[in-house]
Nucleic acid binder design. Structure first.
Length: 580
RNA sequence: GCCGUUGUAGCUUAGUGGUAAAGCACCAUAUUGGUAAUAUGGAGAGCGUGAGUUCAAUCCUCACCAACGGCUCCA
């Protein structure tokens, strides 16, 4: 109930915001304004644009008005009465009509001098309950009326609101802290990837260090897949448009494809996904039920012409490296194969201490035209996935309308440092593409039997996985993944030879090691290694030469250990993919 | 794509209508240092790009590009 109380305050503040805005800008049309997780917002149509610098004035107005907000009164109105009240506000009129059509009550709430069409849920006495310094207008953003991009774009004002000033400050601080973990910042500091304005936005370029990590991650996924009977395949990055006409992608995503016209005038496209290509490998020879399932894996880049405003660091790019796999199987193999994929996902993410949420992404029956195939297919596929989740005993988030156009999905959700939702791993069940491509196997009775496709990605995309993993670890990668695993810092120049010896010894063991033997001071070189988040720093001086042991500093402790033991320990840690 | 904010050396930032300042990083010299950064010196940007206004623009105007926060989208 405490929480409800806070939600009421936030909702009340949305009203207060609208009231202040209307007072300062009388020709503004106010629309809707709910409470949200960290505060509230309200959407307006302004007669002339406003920006962040106008927020202070509005906020001051709100503070000035608040003491006069003693209590809310409410009143039920007729459709005619309420329409009359909002006759110059088309947004409110639209809402009123809808409420009336549904036969629900139309209620108006008033506090201070401000009356709004509203369902209720406010503070009893705003002036007493809300501290003037427990809220803050945060930023101006655009938002389409009713979330539909065909509608007019309104101006949304976001506010932060908590019970106390302290909680508000704590939240703002925490947000600042989260920004320090931003993968774009850490990626630059650790030298993992870069962007070039000449190459273009959404097209990350991977440095040697970043590339090491990409390959290690991919090797790990492959290791898990290989033991479960997957085979690698390889396809070109372009195709004739015919492939996508057959798969159904052309009809749905033609605008989002990078297209290429040949000198002879034929139309090709960069591949935006791999499934259609993979179907053609499956289809290249007749398949017996004895050969099923066929499991194809390929890590490869796909290219999507996303809208520029959607791009964001590594989490949303134009060139996406998918760790893709397609299992072609019979219906009675769906469960076993899907559970095997789920297994891989659990194993893989446990190497990072990740907790993923499960989302059941189903089709939206209200928008049937967005999806291929028959209702029977969808019911069958969705039931199969639901049973899978029940078998696993997980709770899932509702993802109605989040299905792919060819089938439902189980999506695995991570969050970025600011709490934004990112889909990473996915298991998708597809009856439609096998049908469109006529994919069959010959069954026990000699009949052609349509096969099923399971689409599976473990990281989803290496770019997106890296973004969330970097933010999760703040760049403190586990030893097996760290681009530099050990840094050796000789104390003085006359320790360089011995340092070099150890460096070579570690190199021979395939340890990724660096020697910090430049002309900088000892403190500076150690600092440099630590700033690069190297898991182990070896400091080598007279003390170590005498004792024959190494001083090894990890991120959390310091120990004396001899070289052989250290190598054993490292290898063990790398082999087990230990978290540290 | 739409709304808002931002764009000064590799990075982080200062600054002004009269052609730019600092720290870190880099290079050189000295220093051989036992753990949050040795000292001195040097080089490095014409201020995102283009056009316009002006005697004069990095600072004003417009367009474009890019980044960030939202909205929409995400096979």
């Amino acid at each position: 109930m405490e929480n409800q109380n806070l939600q009421n305050k936030r909702h009340t503040l949305a009203h207060l915001l609208a009231s202040a805005v209307l007072e300062i800008y009388p020709d503004t049309k106010n629309t809707i304004g709910p409470a949200i997780d960290d505060g509230f917002y309200y959407d307006f149509e302004f007669s002339s644009p406003i920006g962040d610098k106008d927020l202070a004035q509005i906020e001051n107005k709100m503070r000035k008005m608040l003491p006069k907000w003693l209590e809310f009164s409410h009143e039920e109105k007729t459709k005619e009465g309420s329409s009359e009240y909002f006759k110059t506000n088309p947004y409110k009129l639209e809402l009123i009509n809808e409420i009336a059509e549904k036969g629900e009550k139309i209620t108006f709430y008033t506090c201070g001098d401000f009356t709004d069409l509203c369902r209720g849920g406010h503070s009893e006495n705003p002036s007493k309950e809300i501290n003037t310094d427990s809220f803050k207008l945060d930023r101006v953003a655009g938002a389409y009326w009713r979330g539909d991009e065909k509608n007019k774009m309104l101006t949304r004002i976001y506010g932060l609101a908590f019970n106390t000033r302290e909680e508000l400050d704590a939240y703002i601080n925490q947000r600042e802290e989260a920004r320090k973990r931003d993968h774009k910042k850490i990626g630059r500091e650790l030298g993992l990837f870069t962007f070039s304005e000449l190459v273009g936005s959404g097209l990350p370029l991977w440095t040697p260090k970043g590339t090491i990590m990409r390959e290690l991650l991919n090797d790990y996924v492959w290791e898990l897949r290989k033991s479960r009977g997957y085979q690698k395949v390889c396809i070109p990055h372009i195709t004739k448009k015919d492939l996508y006409e057959t798969s159904g992608h052309w009809a749905k995503y033609a605008d989002d494809l990078f297209k290429i016209e040949t000198r002879e005038g034929h139309l090709y496209a960069m591949k935006p996904m791999n499934c259609p290509h993979h179907t053609q490998i499956f289809a290249c020879e007749p398949r017996s039920y004895r050969d099923m399932p066929q499991r194809y894996a390929e890590t490869t880049m796909v290219y999507r012409d996303e809208q520029s405003g959607e791009l964001s660091g590594l989490s949303r790019v134009l060139s996406i490296t998918q760790d893709d796999a397609h299992v072609f199987c019979r219906e009675n193999q769906i469960e076993t194969e899907s559970l095997a994929i789920w297994d891989i996902i659990e194993k893989f993410y446990s190497a990072f201490g990740f907790e993923l949420q499960v989302r059941f992404s189903t089709h939206d029956p209200m928008q049937r035209e967005k999806y291929l195939g028959t209702d029977e297919m969808w019911t069958k596929a969705e039931n199969a996935l639901e049973n899978l989740m029940k078998t696993k005993g997980v709770t899932w988030l509702d993802g109605t309308g989040e299905a792919a156009f060819y089938g439902p999905k189980i999506d695995f959700i991570a969050h970025d440092s600011l709490g934004r939702v990112l889909q990473v791993a996915t298991i998708q069940l597809d009856f439609n593409q096998p049908k469109n491509f006529g994919l069959v196997c010959t069954n026990e009775r000699g009949e052609k039997e349509q096969v099923v496709m399971i689409h599976a990605a473990i990281m989803g995309s290496i770019e997106r996985f890296m973004s969330t993993m970097i933010e999760h670890t703040a760049g403190n990668f586990p030893t097996w993944l760290a681009p530099v695993q050990v840094s050796i810092v000789p104390v003085r120049e006359n320790h360089n030879d011995k340092a070099k010896e150890i460096y070579e010894a570690l190199k021979r063991e395939d340890v990724r090691v660096e020697l910090e033997d430049d002309n900088n001071s000892l403190g500076k070189r150690i600092n440099h290694a630590k700033a690069q988040k190297v898991p182990y720093v070896i400091v080598l001086g007279d003390k170590e030469l005498e004792s024959g042991n190494l001083t090894v500093e990890s991120r959390t402790d310091k120990q004396e250990i001899n070289l052989e033991d250290f190598i054993l320990k490292l290898k063990e840690e790398i082999k087990n993919k230990s978290l540290n």
